[in-house]
Amino acid sequence: MGEEVKVFGAWGSPFSRRVELALRLKGVPYEYIEEDIVGNKSALLLQYNPVHKKIPVLLHNGKPIAESLVILEYIDETWKSNPIFPEDPYDKAMARFWTKFVDDKCIPALWKAAWSAENEREKAVEEAYECLKTLETALDGKRFFGGDVIGMVDIAANFVGFWLSIIQEATGVELLSADKFPDLFKWTEEFIGCNIVKENLPPRDKLLALFKARFAQVMEPQTNTSK
């Protein structure tokens, strides 16, 4: 069956990398289209995602789907091999719960803690710790959130698995460590150690340079005290 599958994304975005990882896990061939999301969004992106005007967008046989978690559900229901959601309704509901927790609570708290001004950092770091502590309980001693194989929550938590350590290196703010969160830290190693995940990650040095430049910009107003 000649299917047209396209992914509109950005090389450094954990959200578009989620979509690519899910397609790769299922062995679905796709065309990747890089978007300049900072200043020059393509007419196609605006056409396919007129509501949010954001990446990622999955285009399947001419039909656009936006929002990474929605796209992941669509992928799982469309291509049945290598399911990323559990079959059991309760387990599926729990997977949805944790993916929502990652997006609504965890990522914003981690991002805020890493980039916050020094006078706000302590409180922001405490909140980030609470989120990581809660997320660690979802692992419950398992290799992956999905059990022995990578599933929906693992894919959704890719920011914690890879991006967070680079942000920590760029900003000097330590949030996730083997001492504080041993199970979650071990999970990050397992996750990025998987070949299929490794092949789908952006270049670490390129991402680190990007975050270091961004951190320098963020810190500049704090060091410039002249009026």
Rank of each mutant, 00 (worst) to 15 (best):
138 A>P: 06
151 G>C: 08
14 P>F: 03
17 R>P: 00
209 A>C: 13
175 L>C: 02
24 R>D: 03
97 F>V: 13
128 A>N: 10
203 P>W: 02
71 I>E: 04
209 A>E: 14
168 Q>F: 03
31 E>C: 07
18 R>E: 07
96 R>H: 12
79 W>A: 08
60 H>S: 07
85 F>A: 00
49 N>K: 01
204 R>I: 02
221 P>K: 03
199 E>P: 11
192 I>L: 14
64 P>E: 04
97 F>Y: 06
189 E>L: 15
118 E>N: 01
39 G>I: 11
186 K>H: 10
150 I>Y: 05
31 E>S: 09
167 I>W: 01
183 D>E: 15
149 V>T: 11
88 D>G: 14
225 T>G: 08
112 K>Q: 14
141 G>F: 00
51 V>G: 05
107 I>R: 07
131 C>Y: 04
63 K>E: 10
124 A>F: 10
94 M>V: 15
201 L>F: 09
215 F>C: 07
125 V>M: 01
112 K>A: 06
225 T>E: 10
182 P>H: 03
157 A>V: 05
181 F>G: 00
135 L>I: 05
162 F>T: 00
36 D>S: 10
40 N>L: 06
214 R>N: 13
131 C>M: 10
10 A>V: 14
81 S>A: 15
133 K>R: 11
194 C>I: 14
54 K>V: 09
101 F>C: 14
63 K>M: 10
109 A>Y: 09
138 A>M: 04
12 G>S: 03
198 K>M: 11
22 A>N: 13
107 I>M: 11
161 G>D: 05
54 K>N: 09
172 G>R: 01
136 E>V: 00
132 L>F: 00
137 T>C: 03
133 K>A: 02
189 E>A: 14
82 N>I: 05
165 S>D: 02
53 K>V: 03
76 D>T: 01
14 P>T: 10
113 A>G: 09
219 M>H: 08
63 K>V: 09
95 A>Y: 06
43 A>E: 09
34 E>C: 05
197 V>I: 07
193 G>C: 02
183 D>N: 14
220 E>Y: 08
221 P>H: 03
45 L>R: 09
178 A>V: 14
20 E>F: 05
175 L>K: 00
30 Y>L: 09
121 R>Y: 00
224 N>P: 15
183 D>P: 04
78 T>V: 07
169 E>H: 02
194 C>L: 15
53 K>Q: 07
55 I>Y: 12
204 R>Y: 13
61 N>G: 13
31 E>V: 02
70 V>M: 12
193 G>Q: 08
37 I>R: 09
25 L>K: 12
10 A>W: 07
123 K>W: 01
